Amino acid sequence: MDVRVKICGLTTPDQALAAAAAGANYIGLVFFARSPRNLTLVQACDVALAVPPGVAKVALTVDADDAALMAILAALPVDMLQLHGHESPARVAEVRARFGLPVMKAVGVATEADLPALDSYARVADQVLVDAKPAPGADLPGGNGLSFDWRLIARRRWPCPWMLAGGLRPDNVAEAIRLTGARQVDVSSGVESAPGVKDTEAVAAFIAAARGK
Rank of each mutant, 00 (worst) to 15 (best):
A125C: 01
T111V: 15
A125N: 12
E94C: 00
P136W: 03
T111Y: 07
A117I: 11
G100S: 02
P136F: 01
E94S: 00
Q127K: 15
R123T: 14
S120W: 12
P116E: 13
R96L: 02
A106P: 13
L129I: 14
K105W: 13
P141C: 10
L129M: 12
D114G: 08
R96Q: 09
D139R: 06
V103G: 03
V107K: 06
A125Q: 05
G143T: 05
K105Q: 06
G100P: 05
R123K: 09
A117C: 09
L129S: 05
L140I: 07
A122R: 13
L118H: 11
A106F: 11
L118W: 14
V109S: 06
S120N: 04
D114T: 01
A135L: 09
A135I: 11
A135D: 11
L101V: 13
G137M: 10
L140H: 04
D126K: 03
F99L: 06
G143C: 04
D139Y: 03
F99Q: 02
A113W: 07
G108V: 09
P134H: 06
D131F: 03
D126I: 00
K133E: 10
A122M: 11
R96H: 01
A125R: 02
A138C: 10
D114A: 00
A93G: 05
L115K: 03
V128H: 08
L115R: 00
R96Y: 02
R98H: 13
L140T: 02
A113S: 04
A113C: 04
A138F: 15
A97D: 01
L140A: 12
V103K: 01
A125S: 07
